[in-house]
Design a binder for these strands. Structure first.
Lengths: 100, 100
DNA sequence: ACCATAAATCGAGGAATGTCGATTTGAAGG
DNA sequence: CCTTCAAATCGACATTCCTCGATTTATGGT
């Protein structure tokens, strides 16, 4: 667990927003067009619309969150679903508690 | 409390090290030359030696930590002493707990 | 095969950060 | 006053980050 890498990943308003929104997707995102629920995560398009930023930027941000292991990815057909990786988040918080 | 600003301040190995070292100055820093203890904090020189970086860089880093309210400064004569601001750190951790 | 859609990657410009040495400011002591 | 030492600020350059539009890579449907 790279503490500093995690801080870098979270040192951006949009990425922080995304992490928070993903805590409660039903509340924070519009539904998927095919009606699929959020149990596997949220697809990039829906996240992108919410942020109001370009598709490439959001895709890039998601890859940064993924490199930091803050999110888990699952590809299903054309779609890629992203959801929080709660294990990393828990580990991050307790490491911070101990070492900061 | 600017969550993202705090993450930025901590998104650097040296700054993170400094914060951690300041948790236990007796253990992590050499004593002050005049024998003064660390109750008011650690002077810049001593921190600088420990990091091995230039004086200007360390002074700059300390100002970043201060802008984020992660440290408290006290000027005494020629020296400036820096110590952790535990209140901000506590608030940061609990805010992260709640909102991340 | 061909088209449409979702996501990732590429290339680029500007902004912010990292880092240094040099200079300036401020305080203490002779 | 003048010197000396600690710390802050300045100016510069290199690296990283932000953000976009354009292109490419999957995948599905007709």
């Amino acid at each position: 667990m790279q503490l500093v890498e995690l801080h870098k990943a979270l040192a951006n308003d949009t990425r922080m927003d995304i992490m928070r929104w993903m805590s409660d997707p039903e509340k924070n995102f519009r539904p998927h067009k095919d009606g699929k629920d959020f149990s596997d995560g949220v697809c990039v398009q829906v996240i992108q619309e919410k942020t109001g930023m370009s598709q490439s930027t959001v895709s890039h941000y998601l890859s940064i969150l993924q490199r930091a292991n803050l999110v888990i990815t699952e590809r299903v057909g054309k779609w890629t679903y992203y959801k929080r990786n709660d294990e990393t988040i828990r580990a991050f918080l307790s490491e911070l508690q101990l070492t900061l």
